[in-house]
Simulated assay, not measured.
Amino acid sequence: MPRPPHLCTCGQLVPHGARCSCQIQRDRERKARFDQKRPSSRERGYTHEWRKARAEFLHQHPTCAFCGAPAGVVDHVIPHKGDMTLFWDRTNWQALCKPCHDRQKQMQERYNHIIS
């Protein structure tokens, strides 16, 4: 049996599991404001030196630390947040596949942010 639609805060009826167009627009605007203030990837430390170190690390650690699939992302276990010492600390790196990085790792970081 299908689930009933829900009422958005704007008053629009939205099918179950879908998002209202006003929520999507609000998210786009919020993300655009964030991106204007965010430093470029180069300014955050992701330079040619990083790409070389990343390739070497993935060669040494070819599988995802979470699921064992082929890894394609070098993740910082503890988010460096601009701390270049932590950024380059290889003991703080882990190899992850893209799905694990984009789902599980991001959920972990959101959960840890709420708790702390």
Rank of each mutant, 00 (worst) to 15 (best):
S21N: 03
S21W: 04
S21Q: 05
C22K: 03
Q23Y: 09
Q25A: 15
Q25P: 01
R26N: 07
D27P: 00
D27G: 00
E29N: 10
K31R: 15
K31Q: 12
A32C: 03
A32M: 07
R33S: 12
F34H: 13
F34E: 13
Q36H: 09
K37E: 12
K37W: 00
R38D: 04
P39W: 00
S40L: 02
S40Q: 00
S40V: 01
E43T: 02
E43L: 00
E43P: 07
E43Y: 00
R44M: 11
G45F: 09
G45E: 05
Y46K: 06
Y46H: 04
Y46V: 05
T47M: 11
T47C: 10
H48W: 03
E49Y: 05
E49F: 06
E49L: 11
A53P: 12
A53D: 14
A55I: 00
F57C: 07
L58R: 10
H59N: 14
H59Y: 15
Q60M: 10
Q60K: 14
Q60D: 14
Q60N: 14
Q60E: 14
H61A: 10
H61E: 11
P62W: 09
P62N: 14
T63M: 11
T63A: 14
C64N: 12
C64R: 07
A65D: 12
F66T: 15
F66I: 15
G68Y: 08
G68P: 13
A69L: 13
P70V: 11
P70N: 15
A71V: 10
G72E: 13
G72H: 10
H76R: 09
V77H: 06
I78S: 07
I78H: 05
I78F: 05
I78M: 02
P79R: 06
K81R: 15
G82P: 04
G82Y: 02
D83W: 07
M84F: 13
T85K: 04
L86W: 00
F87A: 09
F87T: 08
W88L: 06
W88F: 04
D89S: 06
R90K: 13
R90H: 04
T91D: 06
N92Q: 07
N92W: 02
N92E: 02
W93G: 04
W93I: 01
Q94T: 05
Q94K: 01
Q94W: 03
A95H: 01
L96S: 01
L96H: 08
C97L: 06
K98H: 08
K98E: 12
P99V: 05
P99H: 08
C100V: 01
C100W: 04
H101C: 01
R103Q: 08
R103E: 10
R103C: 01
Q104E: 10
